[in-house]
Design a binder for these strands. Sequence first.
DNA 1: CCAGACGTTGTT
DNA 2: GTCTGG
DNA 3: CCAGACGTTGTT
DNA 4: GTCTGG
Length: 252
Amino acid sequence: MCGRMLLTTPVSEIQRLFGVPERPNLMPRWNVAPTQDIPVIRREEEEGLPGRHLALLRWGLVPPWADDPSIGSRMINARGESVADKPAFRDAFRKRRCLVPLDGFYEWTSVGEGAKPRKQGHIIRRRDRGLFALAGLWECWRGPKGAPPLEPPLESVTVVTTATNATLSFLHDRMPVVLDPADWDAWLDPATPLPVVEGLIRSAPEDWLDVVPVGPKVNSVRNDDASCLDPPQEVERAEAKRKKADDQPSLF
DNA sequence: CCAGACGTTGTT
DNA sequence: GTCTGG
DNA sequence: CCAGACGTTGTT
DNA sequence: GTCTGG
């Protein structure tokens, strides 16, 4: 779950909503895939920079001890129930939490049986279609041990998951952790007591998000334009039919 | 002790 | 079937 | 997450 | 780097 994202809000709006000084050039994205760079909001006290900052990190966390960064493509999510203990995530959970801003994420269902089940995509967004933030963890990889340190190091990010909610349960039994804006500071602050942080890992209230089916374009990462949100053929046909019926002059 | 894994999802 | 790349 | 590759040798 | 399995 949560393996593809929508991020079309202009960077100026991200800058304003999260209160960051950076404003890199970000193209609108309808189909953000793992291994690609995504903007995150984080604290950078260790670099001596107070406050929140926006940085571009690779989606798919590469732990510092990795010999090969390709492990990141299997670390796109981190189970919230175990992030505090798992060697791959524990340090990041304690000291490197971040926000992942987005306009929506995609989930799929398998339709049909046998040899070729069809993949039916869905876009999950806020009901008001506004920007929101997922709970993320980030790490820094300086290359395989024994080799000279990579310059610059590879910074990467993963999205924390939790149990699904009533809105999304027909899609999956897991969902990403959607943070209430009131909790953004607590999630980002490395000084927040861990029990408090763990308390933020919970499924979203069911009235925050909704689900709309989309056509097959989003299935392929090669497609990254507004047509990824086009309705599937069935919905489009039903819509055309309804419209046609509406256009008919009333019989009465 | 050393060697080898270290992760998630979905599906069976 | 399983892994990798995007 | 899905799509697409999954291998070697030799030659260009 | 740290934990698990043998």
